[in-house]
């Protein structure tokens, strides 16, 4: 495997051919904020927070580092006034959907993002696709998927699969940056298979308890 030499934030970084800029930076101990990247999953490029500036002549090019492969003698900057400004706006847009997400709030503090800049559109899901992709790629269960499109796009559990598989797995829960996923699961559980419910007592249980 060919080794590639590039420069990230003034530091010389070696990376294997075919890795992404984000992975190269992470291996070199340079942190880039990201919400939709996961080491076990195929890069998605959904949250755009990991964007970096690549110097290839002037003007510089903005690329999303989680889907951009490393190139020989590339000069990359992970922080600049321009990047910070874009990340701040991205965070403000995401916060309009999930104002209470701790992960988003931490990043907002770092980049000075104002969570009240845009009118709240509390969908709570930021479409990072971590749950959907984890379920499909790692667990191969496909219990959760996207439905609809555009501004109406949301995640949805398939009741038939979720009622059988989710109780023993729930590995996607900690991946969610906003905890909307848990809410969506409890909701579908209560609607479609309350008998198998983990947290909420079922009708049957309630009857037993009342006796």
């Amino acid at each position: 495997m060919n080794e590639i030499l590039l420069e990230i934030d003034g530091k010389e970084v070696r990376a294997r051919e075919g890795t992404t800029l984000l992975e190269a930076a992470q291996n070199a101990g340079i942190s880039i904020p990201k919400l939709c990247q996961h080491e076990k999953l195929i890069p998605f490029g959904g949250c755009r927070l990991c964007l970096v500036e690549v110097e290839s002549g002037s003007p510089t090019k903005l690329v999303v580092s989680c889907v951009y492969p490393v190139e020989e003698s590339l000069v990359v900057r992970t922080r600049s006034e321009k990047i910070d400004r874009i990340r701040k706006t991205l965070l403000e847009l995401l916060l309009a959907h999930a104002p209470n997400s701790l992960q988003l709030q931490d990043l907002a503090k770092e980049y000075g993002a104002n969570k009240d800049r845009f009118e709240k559109e509390a969908s709570f899901c930021i479409h990072c696709g971590l749950c959907v992709r984890y379920c499909a790629e790692v667990k191969k269960l496909n219990a959760v998927g996207f439905v609809d499109r555009g501004i109406n796009k949301e995640i949805s559990f398939i009741p038939e699969i979720a009622s059988k598989e989710c109780k023993d797995c729930m590995e996607c829960f900690p991946l969610c940056p906003t905890s909307y996923l848990q809410a969506a699961f409890v909701f579908i559980e209560a609607l479609a298979f309350p008998e198998a419910s983990s947290g909420i007592p079922s009708k049957k249980q309630k009857l037993i308890n009342n006796q």
């Binding site: 499909a136 496909n142 219990a143 998927g145 996207f146 439905v147 398939i158």
Partner: peptide, 21 residues
Amino acid sequence: LGRVSEKLEVPLSRTMHIASF
């Protein structure tokens, strides 16, 4: 949708994604 998913070996979540898209 369930029948089509089963026969084509496409996950139901994917068929739903397309049918709702």
